[in-house]
Structure formats: structure tokens, C-alpha cells
């Protein structure tokens, strides 16, 4: 479990090793405080959606899941994509309403990021990796939390670097997007180094 947690945060970082959620990663990293907000929202959504999707996958979609109902040959696993995206959209919506009702301040801070998350590939990607690697429900809870923390860590660090980078004197063509890619590449190199570290 600890290995899984550490790996999902560092060496298998969703953003820097699997390129998931890079669109949002590049677009919402101009300032550290917005990056922190988005990172927290991702941790929350990822920790909930991955285990819930694991429950749905194991309970209703895998081959033989309906054996108890006298339907041993039913294999609905081709539906997992639609099921996952539906679950993610629904959970984001519920989370948004819950925050609005009980934690209004948090809602104001995170509110505008929540809809973005439905179409963030890191969230769907986390669930798809869970399905592909056949994690159990407790494992998927750890994996969901770890991958969320890893993604948040990456975007906060990246936003902090970008804030400094504004003052640097770069060639005109590198200004902006190209420099963002090059810096992300260097960060990815750093995170990849964790793969060799025994923790």
C-alpha cells in the first residue's frame, strides 16, 4: 500500500509521467493560489471517484458480475467508459452542491474549478488505470488519493516556477507556451528520478 501511494505520487505522477491533465496543467498555472485551488479540487474528486468507479466496475460491469442474478455470461465491461464519465460528472456535481450548502467559503475558492474537472483527463485517466491494473477497492482508494496529491504537487510547483519565469529574458519564440513545455520537461525528468529511489 505504501509503495502504491509513493509510486502514484512521484514516479507514476499522472501529469509528468503519463501526461494526463496537461491541458489544464498548462492553462491554469499562471498563479500559485489558483494552482493550489485546482490541486485541492483534484485531490478531493480523485479520492472519491476512483474508489466509487472501482465499486461500480467490480459490482456491475466485469465479466460474471451478474452471476448472482442468473446471468453468468453477461459482460458489460465495454460500458466502463460511459459509466466512468457519468460517475465523474455526477460526483463533481454533487460535490459542488455539498460544498455550496455546507462549506460556502471553500465553495467560493474552488467553485470555478470544479466544472473544469469533469473534462480533465487526469480524473478519467486515474479511473481507467484503476480498471486496467485491476486494483481492489482499498487499493483504488489509496491510488486515487496518491495520484491526486501527485497531480496537485506538480501543478503547484509548476505555477511557482512560472511566476519566477516571467522575469526571465527569453528568445521571443520561447516566450510563453514553449518555455512552459521545456520547464515541464525538466520537472518530468526530476520526478522520473524517483523511480530509482528505494523509499
Amino acid at each position: 500500500m505504501t509503495d502504491l501511494l509513493i509510486a502514484s505520487i512521484f514516479s507514476e505522477n499522472l501529469a509528468l509521467a503519463y501526461f494526463l491533465g496537461i491541458c489544464t496543467f498548462l492553462a491554469v498555472s499562471e498563479r500559485v493560489d489558483t494552482a493550489v485551488g485546482l490541486g485541492l479540487a483534484i485531490i478531493a474528486v480523485q479520492t472519491i471517484t476512483v474508489p466509487v468507479n472501482a465499486l461500480i466496475l467490480n459490482g456491475a460491469l466485469v465479466d460474471g458480475a451478474w452471476a448472482w442474478a442468473g446471468l453468468p455470461d453477461v459482460d458489460l465491461s465495454f460500458l466502463r467508459l460511459v459509466a466512468f464519465i457519468g460517475v465523474i460528472a455526477a460526483i463533481v456535481q454533487v460535490l459542488e452542491m455539498t460544498l455550496d450548502r455546507y462549506f460556502p467559503r471553500l465553495y467560493i475558492a474552488l467553485g470555478s474549478f470544479l466544472p473544469l474537472i469533469t473534462v480533465n483527463c487526469a480524473v478519467l485517466g486515474g479511473s481507467l488505470f484503476m480498471a486496467e491494473r485491476q486494483y481492489t477497492v482499498p487499493e483504488s482508494l489509496v491510488y486515487g488519493f496518491g495520484s491526486g496529491v501527485g497531480w496537485a504537487l506538480a501543478i503547484i510547483a509548476f505555477a511557482a516556477i512560472r511566476e519566477r519565469l516571467r522575469y526571465s529574458d527569453m528568445p521571443a519564440g520561447v516566450q510563453g507556451l514553449a518555455s512552459a513545455f521545456l520547464v515541464t520537461g525538466l520537472m518530468s525528468l526530476g520526478f522520473a528520478a524517483f523511480a530509482r529511489v528505494p523509499l
Binding site: 516566450q175 521545456l182 525528468l189
Partner: peptide
């Protein structure tokens, strides 16, 4: 993974060097 970031970054640099109108303005003048 890092190589993909570097190649796309360099590719954007190359395209922007050829098409100067795509260059983003500097946020701070030195």
C-alpha cells in the same frame, strides 16, 4: 516522458520563429 515535452517545446519555438505573429508578448519589459 521528458523527451516528449522537450520536442513539443522546441517544435513550438521553431514554428514561432517562422511565424512571428504567433509570439506571445513578454509580460515584463526588462
Amino acid at each position: 516522458a521528458p523527451a516528449a515535452f522537450f520536442i513539443i517545446g522546441l517544435l513550438i519555438w521553431a514554428i514561432r520563429s517562422a511565424r512571428a505573429d504567433q509570439v506571445e508578448p513578454a509580460q515584463y519589459q526588462l
